[in-house]
């Protein structure tokens, strides 16, 4: 069984919601990411989304753009992202890792080679931002054959039938984009997000994770009351931006995530 399925099954049993931090691999440095992955788990992460940096992150706001540029300037590559996962797996056999990024670095490595390398490194799912379902069929099939989940986005503007496509091709969970904008944008309408979730869950048969624009414990708890998982990315990278070394980065991130974990667990009851 894929680690993602196992994690959501366990949380469902416990009546808890998943906390999913997103960090860009190699930001602010490779060493920091290396130290950060276990720190995220200590701070209460149930699943980690690890960003593959790309030169042209069209769907991302300024924070993730800057993080990607900096990671690339340090020589980050897809092969090294996979090394980071392999390192992490030496000490953590349970926490699922989902790679999130754009199609071109994956295609440059070769889809088949990438899928095999990702499986061997201990990756559990792959979210390719610019592969919507209609362009993703062969890639999604390859991932599923290797036991990895293809993870898809759905947006407030998506027609209902899009959820059927995601149900047909995807697995693991659905990443519901909470606003019509880029990552890290400001204006999140919690009520309208919550209204969409039950329908999406029913239509896809998958857990629903909500991301794009969740910046604090209160919003996380409100979303977590209905969704199965909350994703926090841009705010986390902002916190990392000023850290002087890996230790400080870990301390900052743990201090930021712990209250969110608590809020998520308190507000949410069985």
């Amino acid at each position: 069984m894929n680690r993602i399925d196992r994690t959501f099954a366990r949380l469902r049993e416990q009546g808890r919601k998943a906390l999913i931090p997103f960090v860009t691999a190699g930001f602010p440095s490779v060493e920091t990411t290396q130290a950060l992955l276990p720190a995220l788990v200590r701070a209460g992460a149930d699943l980690i989304e690890l960003g593959i940096p790309f030169s042209d992150p069209m769907a991302d706001g300024p924070t993730i753009q800057r993080a990607s540029e900096r990671a690339l300037a340090q020589g980050m590559t897809l092969a090294r992202v996979l090394e980071l996962v392999r390192d992490f797996r030496r000490t953590d056999a349970d926490t699922p890792v989902v790679l999130m990024g754009y199609a071109n670095p994956i295609e440059a490595m070769g889809e088949a080679r990438f899928v095999q390398a990702a499986r061997e490194a201990g990756v559990d799912g792959v979210l390719t931002v610019d592969y919507p379902p209609q362009e993703a069929e062969p890639f999604a099939a390859r991932l599923r054959e290797a036991g990895l989940h293809p993870i898809f986005l759905l947006a407030p503007t998506s027609r209902p039938e899009r959820a059927d496509e995601v149900a047909r091709l995807g697995g693991g969970y659905v990443y519901y984009v909470s606003l019509t904008g880029v990552t890290g944008a400001g204006s999140l309408d919690v009520a309208s997000v919550l209204a969409r979730i039950p329908g999406l869950r029913e239509r896809t048969g998958l857990p629903i994770a909500v991301g794009f624009g969740i910046r604090d414990a209160q919003t996380a708890a409100e979303i977590g009351a209905v969704a199965d998982a909350v994703v926090i990315g841009s705010r986390l990278l902002e916190i990392l931006e000023g850290a002087s070394d890996a230790d400080e980065a870990c301390r900052r991130v743990e201090a930021f995530l712990r209250p969110i974990r608590r809020a998520l667990d308190e507000k949410v009851t069985r």
Binding site: A59, Q134, E135, L153, L154, A155, S158, R162, V177, G181
Partner: peptide
Amino acid sequence: ARGHFGPYGGVYVAETLVPA
């Protein structure tokens, strides 16, 4: 019909842009 010129073209965008 799906915007492909042989192996090229297509709609390689994030889901947020697909409806537009």
